[in-house]
Amino acid sequence: MLTVLIISIIIVFIVLILAVTTTSKAYTYKHTVDPIEDNPHLQSKLNEEEEQKKNNEAQ
C-alpha cells in the first residue's frame, strides 16, 4: 500500500512539473499577426461591401 502511495505521489509531481514547464514556455512564445494585406478574409469582405454599394446605387 505504501509503494502505491509513493508511486502515485511521484506521478503527481511529474505531471505538475510538466504542466508548469509547458505553461511557462507558452507564455514566452512570441505570437505574430499577419499583415492586413495578406488576409484573404478581409479582401473577400471588402469585395462584398463594394458589391453591396453597387447594388444600392443601382436601385
Rank of each mutant, 00 (worst) to 15 (best):
I6A: 10
P40K: 00
I6P: 02
Y29K: 14
E37R: 07
A19H: 13
D38P: 02
H41V: 00
L16D: 06
K25R: 11
P40Y: 01
Q43M: 15
I11C: 10
P40Q: 00
I7P: 03
K25V: 03
I9Y: 06
S44L: 07
Q52E: 08
Q52L: 08
D38K: 03
E49G: 05
Y27R: 15
Y29F: 13
A26S: 10
I17R: 15
K45L: 12
L5M: 10
T22I: 08
I17Q: 13
I6V: 11
L46Q: 03
N55V: 06
I11R: 05
F13C: 13
A26N: 12
K53W: 03
P35K: 09
T21W: 13
A19D: 09
I9G: 09
I7W: 04
N55F: 06
I36V: 15
I6E: 12
I10Y: 13
N55A: 09
D38G: 09
V4S: 05
V15P: 01
V20K: 09
F13I: 13
Q43F: 12
S8E: 03
K54E: 07
T22A: 08
T32A: 11
E50T: 12
K30G: 02
T23H: 03
S8Q: 04
N47S: 01
P40R: 00
L18F: 10
N47Q: 03
D38T: 06
F13G: 11
N39E: 04
H31M: 10
Y27K: 15
T22P: 01
I14R: 14
T32C: 04
L42R: 03
K45W: 07
I9V: 08
T23Q: 02
E48T: 04
Q52V: 04
A19I: 14
A26V: 09
P40C: 00
K53L: 12
L5A: 12
N39K: 02
N47V: 01
I9N: 11
I17Y: 15
I36P: 15
A26T: 08
D34Q: 09
T21G: 13
K54A: 06
V4E: 07
K53Y: 01
T22L: 06
I7M: 12
V12Q: 06
I11S: 09
L42Y: 03
A19E: 08
L42C: 00
V4T: 04
L16A: 13
T21S: 14
V33I: 14
P35G: 11
A19Q: 13
N55P: 04
I11V: 12
Y27W: 14
D38S: 13
S8N: 06
L18R: 11
L46T: 02
I17C: 10
V12H: 06
T32V: 09
T22H: 04
I9C: 09
K25P: 02
P40T: 01
E50G: 09
S44F: 03
L42I: 03
T32H: 06
N39D: 10
V4A: 05
T28S: 06
A26Q: 12
D38A: 13
L46Y: 00
F13N: 12
D38Q: 11
S44A: 07
K53G: 02
F13H: 05
I9R: 11
Y27C: 11
T23C: 01
S24C: 08
